[in-house]
Design a protein around this nucleic acid. Structure first.
Lengths: 283, 283
DNA sequence: TCAAAAGTGTTGGACCTACACCCATGT
DNA sequence: ACATGGGTGTAGGTCCAACACTTTTGA
C-alpha cells in the first residue's frame, strides 16, 4: 500500500483571478464617471473548453514554484508583470476538469488597469476586462437542529462591450456548532471549468479583506482623490459610505500632495498618495 | 508546448494540523488546572523522514477528494473521525520534500481531545499531543523605501512527556504598498519536511480567526464553564483577558444550563453550552 | 477563617453613525 | 445662478477597557 501510494500523480495548475476597478460613463460634464468592478478573463484557444472564457492559468511545471507559474502565465498570456497576488484556495474536486483530474491553486490579484496594456499571448485568443455583477435571485434560511442553513441562488453577469457571460450558482452556507460550512454548486455557467465557483469565492474574500486590510490601494493609481478611493471601497463592499466618516477612517493611510485634480463643473480636489509609513494597528 | 505541458504530473498530499487545549497541573486543591495549547503529531514509520515527528497526512489518490483524503488519513493513522477542518494553504515549493516534489494542501482542525482516543495506525509508529510554545528570540524592524520590514527569529518548542522537539524559524514580514508579503525560512527543525513553517502559519491563522469567529468552541466539551472558555481564548490569543468584559462579549454565544461544576475550594460555577441559535452579526 | 474563583456593576474614553453645513468650480 | 462634488464639524449612541466590589465554596 505504501508503494502503491507513491504512484498517484496529478496535474496541478495555478489560476489567477485578477480584479480592477474601471471607469464607466460620464453622464454630464458635472458628474464623476461611475466606477465598476471588473475581472480579467481570457478566451481559451485550446481544449478543454476551447472557445470559452476563463481565468488565466497554467499547468505547474516540474521544479517550478507556484509563484513563478502564476507570474509566468500572466506574462505569457496577458502581458501582465509583477503584480500583487495572494493564494486563495486550492480546488481538488476530481471532476472539475471534464477530461482528467486537474487540481487548481487559485490566486487573487488586484491592479490598476490603467497601468497595464493587455495583450493576448500563447494559448489564448483574447484577454479582456469584464464588468462583474452578482445578483441574488433567491434566498432561503432554514433552522436546523444545531444552527441554520442559508441557501442563495446567485446570478453572475460578466459583460465586456457586446459580450455577455452569465452563470448561475447555488451557494449553501451551513452554520453548525459555530462553524461555517459552505457548499457551492454551479447550475449553469458560460465560464470554463468551475471558474464561476472560484469567482464567488474570490469576491467573498475580497469583501472581507477590504474591511480590515489595505488591499484596496492596489487598485488605485499612484495619485488619486479621496472620492475615487471611496468609490472603490463602495464597489468592493457593495454599499454606500458616508463621506465624512470614510475620510476619518482612511485619514492615516494617505498623505496629501500639492497637486489638484483639474476637473470640471465643481471644486477641484486634492490628490493623495498612499502613506508608506502607515502601520496597521495590530501585527 | 501545449502537448508538453500535459505531461507534468505531481504528487499531492493533504496534511492536517490539529489543535486542542489540554489540562496542565493543578497546583493546589484551590487552583484551577492550567490550560495549554497542544498540537497532534505522528511519528513517521516510513521514508522520507522515517522516525521524525510530523503532521498526519496522506497522498491524495486518484479520484479522491481532498476532504476524503484528509478524513481517511486521520482515521487510518490516528483514529480520529469526522472533525471540523478548514483549508489553510497549499505549499508548492519544489524542494519541500527531499526526494521528489510533493505538493501539500494543509488543513487546520480543532477538537476537544477528551472526545478522542488516539491510536497509531498505518505508516505511523506513534501519535501524541505536543504542548506548543513559541518564543521570539530576536526581532528587528527596518524602514524601507515603500514601507518596512520586520524580521523575527522564532523558537518553537513541542513537548510531550519526556519528548522535546525544537525548531527555529526566521519570519520576514514585509509591508510594501499596503500589502503584507511574508517569507518563512526554517533554520533548524526536528519536524519532518516544512512542517515547522506550516505550524507557524496555522498558529497565525488560528489567532486571527479566534477574534472574529467562533472556532474556539470546537475545542470545548459539550458543557463548560465560562472560565474554561476564557482560558481557551487566552491561550489562543496569547494574552490575558478581563473576566467581566469577556463574559459580556460571549454572552450571546452561550446558553446556561441548570448544572454546576462540582469543584473544590471555591464557589461552584454554572455550566454553559454553545448557543446554536446564535448568529454572527454580518453574513 | 481564608484563598480562590464566580459573578456583576460602573465609569470614562474611543470610535462609529448620521446629518448638517459651507466652499469652490465651470458652464 | 446652480448643480455637483470637495471638504469639515458636531451630537448621540455603542462598544470596550479597566477597575471595584460582592458572593460562595472546601479545607
Amino acid at each position: 500500500m505504501i508503494c502503491q501510494d507513491t504512484f498517484y500523480r496529478h496535474t496541478v495548475t495555478v489560476d489567477s483571478i485578477i480584479f480592477t476597478v474601471g471607469n464607466g460613463l460620464r453622464e454630464s460634464y458635472r458628474k464623476l464617471p461611475e466606477k465598476k468592478l471588473q475581472v480579467l478573463l481570457a478566451k481559451r484557444a485550446i481544449e478543454p473548453h476551447a472557445g470559452k472564457w476563463g481565468f488565466i492559468g497554467s499547468i505547474v511545471r516540474d521544479e517550478e514554484r507556484f509563484d513563478d507559474a502564476i507570474q509566468r502565465s500572466l506574462k505569457e498570456k496577458a502581458n501582465i508583470k509583477d503584480i500583487y497576488l495572494e493564494q486563495l484556495y486550492t480546488w481538488g474536486d476530481p471532476k472539475r476538469d471534464p477530461r482528467e483530474r486537474v487540481i487548481s491553486a487559485s490566486y487573487m490579484g488586484l491592479i490598476d488597469s490603467d497601468n497595464i496594456k493587455l495583450k493576448a499571448g500563447s494559448s489564448v485568443d483574447d484577454v479582456k476586462w469584464f464588468d462583474v455583477k452578482v445578483s441574488q435571485e433567491k434566498e432561503k434560511t432554514i433552522e436546523k437542529k444545531e444552527g441554520y442553513q442559508k441557501t442563495e441562488d446567485l446570478e453572475i453577469t460578466l459583460t465586456s462591450e457586446k459580450l455577455v457571460l452569465t452563470s448561475k450558482v447555488k451557494v449553501v452556507k451551513e452554520f453548525t456548532k459555530g462553524n461555517w460550512i459552505i457548499y457551492t454548486q454551479i447550475l449553469k455557467s458560460d465560464l470554463a471549468f468551475d471558474h464561476a465557483k472560484m469567482l464567488i469565492y474570490a469576491l467573498e474574500r475580497l469583501k472581507n479583506k477590504v474591511e480590515y486590510t489595505t488591499i484596496a490601494f492596489n487598485l488605485m493609481p499612484e495619485k488619486f482623490t479621496l472620492t475615487e478611493l471611496q468609490q472603490v471601497y463602495e464597489i468592493l463592499l457593495d454599499r454606500p459610505l458616508l463621506k465624512a466618516n470614510f475620510r476619518r477612517k482612511i485619514y492615516d493611510m494617505v498623505v496629501e500632495t500639492e497637486e489638484y485634480e483639474e476637473t470640471a463643473g465643481h471644486r477641484p480636489s486634492k490628490l493623495f498618495t498612499f502613506n508608506t509609513n502607515w502601520q496597521p494597528h495590530v501585527f
